[in-house]
Every structure is written in C-alpha cells, then in structure tokens.
C-alpha cells in the first residue's frame, strides 16, 4: 500500500487516531460526520501515518497519526478527477467552482499532466460532506515526476489566473512539492516542501543539491 501526501484515508472511528484527541470536542464530531483524514507531508514511522483532521472552521485543524492497519480506504486526489465526481455533486452544481473544475481539467489534460483537487474541494468530493463555501479557493496538486520546463509552467499559471476562483497548485516532483506560482516566475530558487520540512533549491527535480542544504 503506497500512501502519498494529500491522499484521503477513510477510518472507522476517532479511536483509530493515535494520541489524546479528547481535548478538542470538535474532532469526534468531525470524524463522525466524515470519517476521512488527509495524509500530511511528514515521514511514516512504525506504520504510523501522519494525518490531518479537518473540522468546520479554519482553526479546527489537528495533526495526528493513524496506524496504517486501521485504514479502510484510500482516495487519491487524481481519483476524484478520473470520475469527474464534481458533476454528481449537487451542492456545487451551477456554481463557479463547478465551471472552474471543468476548465482546470481541460487545461491539465491539454498538457497531459495528471492533477487532482485537495483542500476543501477534495475533501467534499471524497466524503460527500458539504465543505466548500463561496469563498473557498481551489487547492490542487499536479503530478510532475519529470522536469516541467519553466515556460510551460508559466503558460499553465497564466491560464489558471483567468479562472474566477483562486487556484493554488502544488507541483509534486519525486522530491517533494513546489508552488506552481513560484516556479513559474523563473527567478532562481524555489521552496521545496519535503517530508522533512521545507528547503530552498534551484532544481526541485534533482537530488544532489539538497545535500548542500
């Protein structure tokens, strides 16, 4: 079972979460209404998967871990795109979010890049629980295992800026993720988010300069 950052994991109950989560009363409620947690960008150690829990409000976020054996189901961001799950979602029908998702899909398809929604949109499409609001941004990841030329990144970014919703793209390389908006500027180093924290790098696809720190 390969888990990746931003995968949504279905669990049975709040008891599957490791550590004391009783202090925050919202957690029990959150897991009951949508038993999904999201894989955080941190190392998996002793089968303990780092996950985040999402409550109703922005302040309701908690980082914890879950044993990999307690995972019932895994939903990847790109899976939500394959099924175009937004078309079945009544809550966002006739909204600018729906139109944006359709447009973003055709943009990434035209560059043959696999993508998927994360954040509130990914969470709602996966869990079926209303999470998206009128002010929601669209957070997405794009799989770019091979070098994406800066000029293409710039073209994609410019197309996304035309959308009615603010879109935040993380490009997932094999080393970590970078913000498309930053990479597309082409102005030197970019922040690579790795399992062991952020680092500034010139080439987010290459290994060796990371050794320099």
């Amino acid at each position: 079972m390969e888990l990746r950052v931003n995968d949504l994991l279905k669990i049975k109950s709040v008891n599957d979460l490791i550590g004391d989560v009783s202090e925050a009363s919202w957690i029990d409620e959150a897991i009951k209404s949508a038993p999904y947690v999201v894989v955080r960008r941190a190392p998996i150690m002793n089968n303990k998967v780092p996950v985040g829990i999402r409550g109703n409000s922005r302040s309701q976020r908690l980082a914890t871990t879950v044993l990999s054996g307690n995972i019932i189901d895994i939903i990847t961001p790109e899976q939500l795109v394959v099924g175009k799950l937004w078309r079945d979602n009544k809550h966002i029908s006739n909204t600018k979010m729906l139109r944006t998702l359709e447009a973003v899909d055709s943009i990434f398809k035209s560059y043959r890049i696999t993508w998927g929604p994360t954040g509130s949109v990914g969470f709602e499409l996966a869990s079926g629980v209303e999470t998206i609001t009128n002010t929601s941004d669209l957070d997405i990841i794009a799989r770019t295992p091979e070098v994406l030329p800066i000029w293409i990144a710039e073209k994609i970014e410019n197309e996304l800026l035309e959308m009615p919703i603010k879109i935040d793209v993380q490009l997932e390389t094999l080393k970590g993720s970078i913000a498309l908006a930053e990479y597309a500027r082409g102005s030197g180093k970019v922040m690579l988010r790795t399992l062991n924290g952020p680092m500034l790098v010139l080439n987010p696809w290459s290994d060796y300069e990371q050794l320099e720190g």
């Binding site: 922040m191 952020p198 680092m199 500034l200």
Partner: peptide, 25 residues
C-alpha cells in the same frame, strides 16, 4: 497558514534575495 519552518525559510530567502542581484529579476 505556513508552518514555523516555512516562515523561517521564507525570511532567509527574502534576506538572500535582498542581498543578491542575480536571485531576482
């Protein structure tokens, strides 16, 4: 919603760019 690690790295990056002609166009 940046982590403390991210904030520190960005501050150092800003400092680096402010001192280097090549880093930013």
């Amino acid at each position: 919603g940046a982590t403390p690690g991210m904030v520190s790295m960005r501050l150092l990056q800003a400092l680096e760019v402010s001192q280097d002609d090549k880093t930013q166009r």
